[in-house]
Nucleic acid binder design. Structure first.
Length: 414
DNA sequence: TCTGGGGTCCTAGGACCC
DNA sequence: TCTGGGGTCCTAGGACCC
């Protein structure tokens, strides 16, 4: 009844940094970091000095004085990431991409055509190396969780197949932080309870783990420690939220500051909502203060929205209310907007709607007119590019901390 | 000299309904 | 006059992932 190990987890090694070294041979073998103010990615040579992402540039330079910073070639990351995943797709349609440089693949149905999973993995690695010039590590196991752990253990530039007969032994010798879902906080909590390896976690009682980590996390981790992972490779996943954020440095908490920033974020988000034809009902804003503490405010509307002007107004309202509740906070360092409760794709026009039921705002909106204006802007951008047209206050606000090309990369609909 | 930007999922408390 | 229990939705916050 034991199933074969047929789940692959493929992960490009130090992806952004490797692409930079590929594009510029003079960078090969050297410690480099991609980014400006912070490290977005580090080469293996830089990681050897302790350089990690995200780390402020000054701290990285302190750890590694000869570190070379390079600005990103974001278009190339997208192109090469896509190409690597496409190599996987040559062996199975069952591919779940989880980020720009990482994907699961289920090759159970492909063995007659292409051979054993391990052979497929080796071929993929060789082809990505030969065709793209990049190293990709692959873990092969019976479950997604174990395949993911295996690829981490296989790095750099390795292949690791976990035999179903020995998977629990393999798992139990590893540190807990290799598990999906164990970050710094959970690692620390477990350590205080005397748990540092997956094997030590596995023998704890469900009650004790639930008490320590909460119901869901406790059950999940205990199950995973025995490799009880029932998740399947999912080829299509619909987004549940669409959001954007902008770091501001340290700025006064005034409308002059947050208005253009929110305008720009709302434009980006609303255009994506329209492009996917998925209007949102819930709008959440987040404001981070100078001390890095952040607070959120959310509102769920009576009707879905996707007009830029409407989203902007709702977000502005929320941020104003939030700041009124925190009069002691004089400066802010980040604003964010997130849209959720995304509707099904419907082609109906955005009707005038009530913003709130309490009558605190004018009841109706020029929904239809806004919809038309947005469609016109979307069409111009589709032809001439994003910066060809836009709301004056947002485009003039110019000083963006991160190029929009990078933002697009991070968007998860890949 | 404090640290980007895009996401997912979980928890807890309160409102509201039956 | 005081009382139950369950379900759903919403909001705020937090941990985690790449």
């Amino acid at each position: 009844m034991q199933t074969a190990a047929a789940i692959l987890h493929a992960d490009l090694d130090a992806f952004y940094a490797s692409v930079e070294q590929l594009l510029d041979p003079s960078l090969r073998g050297k410690p480099i970091a991609v980014g400006g103010g912070i490290v977005l990615a580090a080469s293996y040579e830089a990681k050897a000095f302790g350089v990690r992402s995200p780390m402020p540039a000054w701290q990285a330079r302190k750890l590694c004085p000869e570190l070379t910073f390079v600005g990103g070639h974001f278009g190339e990351y997208q192109r090469l990431g896509d190409a690597a995943i496409d190599v996987l797709r040559d062996y199975t349609p069952e591919v779940e991409r989880i980020s720009i440089d990482e994907a699961f693949a289920d090759v159970a149905g492909s063995t007659r055509l292409f051979g054993e999973p391990a052979a497929i993995a080796q071929t993929v690695r060789a082809r990505v190396r030969a065709e793209l010039g990049l190293a990709i590590s692959i873990g092969v196991a019976r479950t997604k969780h174990l395949a993911k752990i295996a690829s981490q253990v296989a790095k750099p530039d390795g292949l690791l197949v976990v035999d179903p007969a020995t998977e629990v032994e393999f798992l139990h010798g590893l540190p807990v932080e290799l598990m999906w879902g164990v970050g710094p906080v959970t690692k620390e909590r477990l350590a205080r309870a005397g748990v540092t390896t997956i094997g030590q976690l596995a023998v704890r009682s469900p009650e004790s783990m639930e008490k320590l980590l909460g119901r869901a996390a406790g059950q999940k981790l205990l199950g995973l420690s025995w490799n009880r992972d029932v998740r399947e490779v999912q080829t299509h996943r619909r987004a549940r939220t669409i959001g954007a954020q902008s770091a501001l440095g340290r700025q006064p908490a005034t409308e002059r500051v947050f208005r253009p920033a929110l305008q720009h974020l709302a434009e980006r988000i609303a255009s994506r909502l329209r492009a996917k034809d998925r209007p949102c009902r819930t709008v959440t804003v987040r404001v981070r203060f100078a001390d890095l503490r952040s607070v959120t405010r959310a509102v769920t509307l009576g009707a879905p929205i996707s007009a830029t002007a409407t989203l902007t107004e709702v977000a502005l309202d929320l941020v104003r209310g939030l700041l009124r509740d925190h009069p002691e906070e004089r400066s802010i360092s980040l604003v964010a907007i997130s849209a959720s409760h995304l509707g099904q794709s419907t082609l109906q026009l955005e009707l005038p709607f009530k913003l709130r039921d309490d009558g605190g705002r004018p009841g109706t909106r020029k929904g239809v007119a806004r919809e038309r204006a947005d469609r016109a802007v979307d069409a111009i951008r589709a032809r001439f590019g994003w910066d060809a047209v836009g709301y004056a206050s947002a485009t003039a606000g110019g000083a963006r901390s991160v190029p929009d090309a990078f933002r697009s990369l991070a968007e998860k609909d890949l």
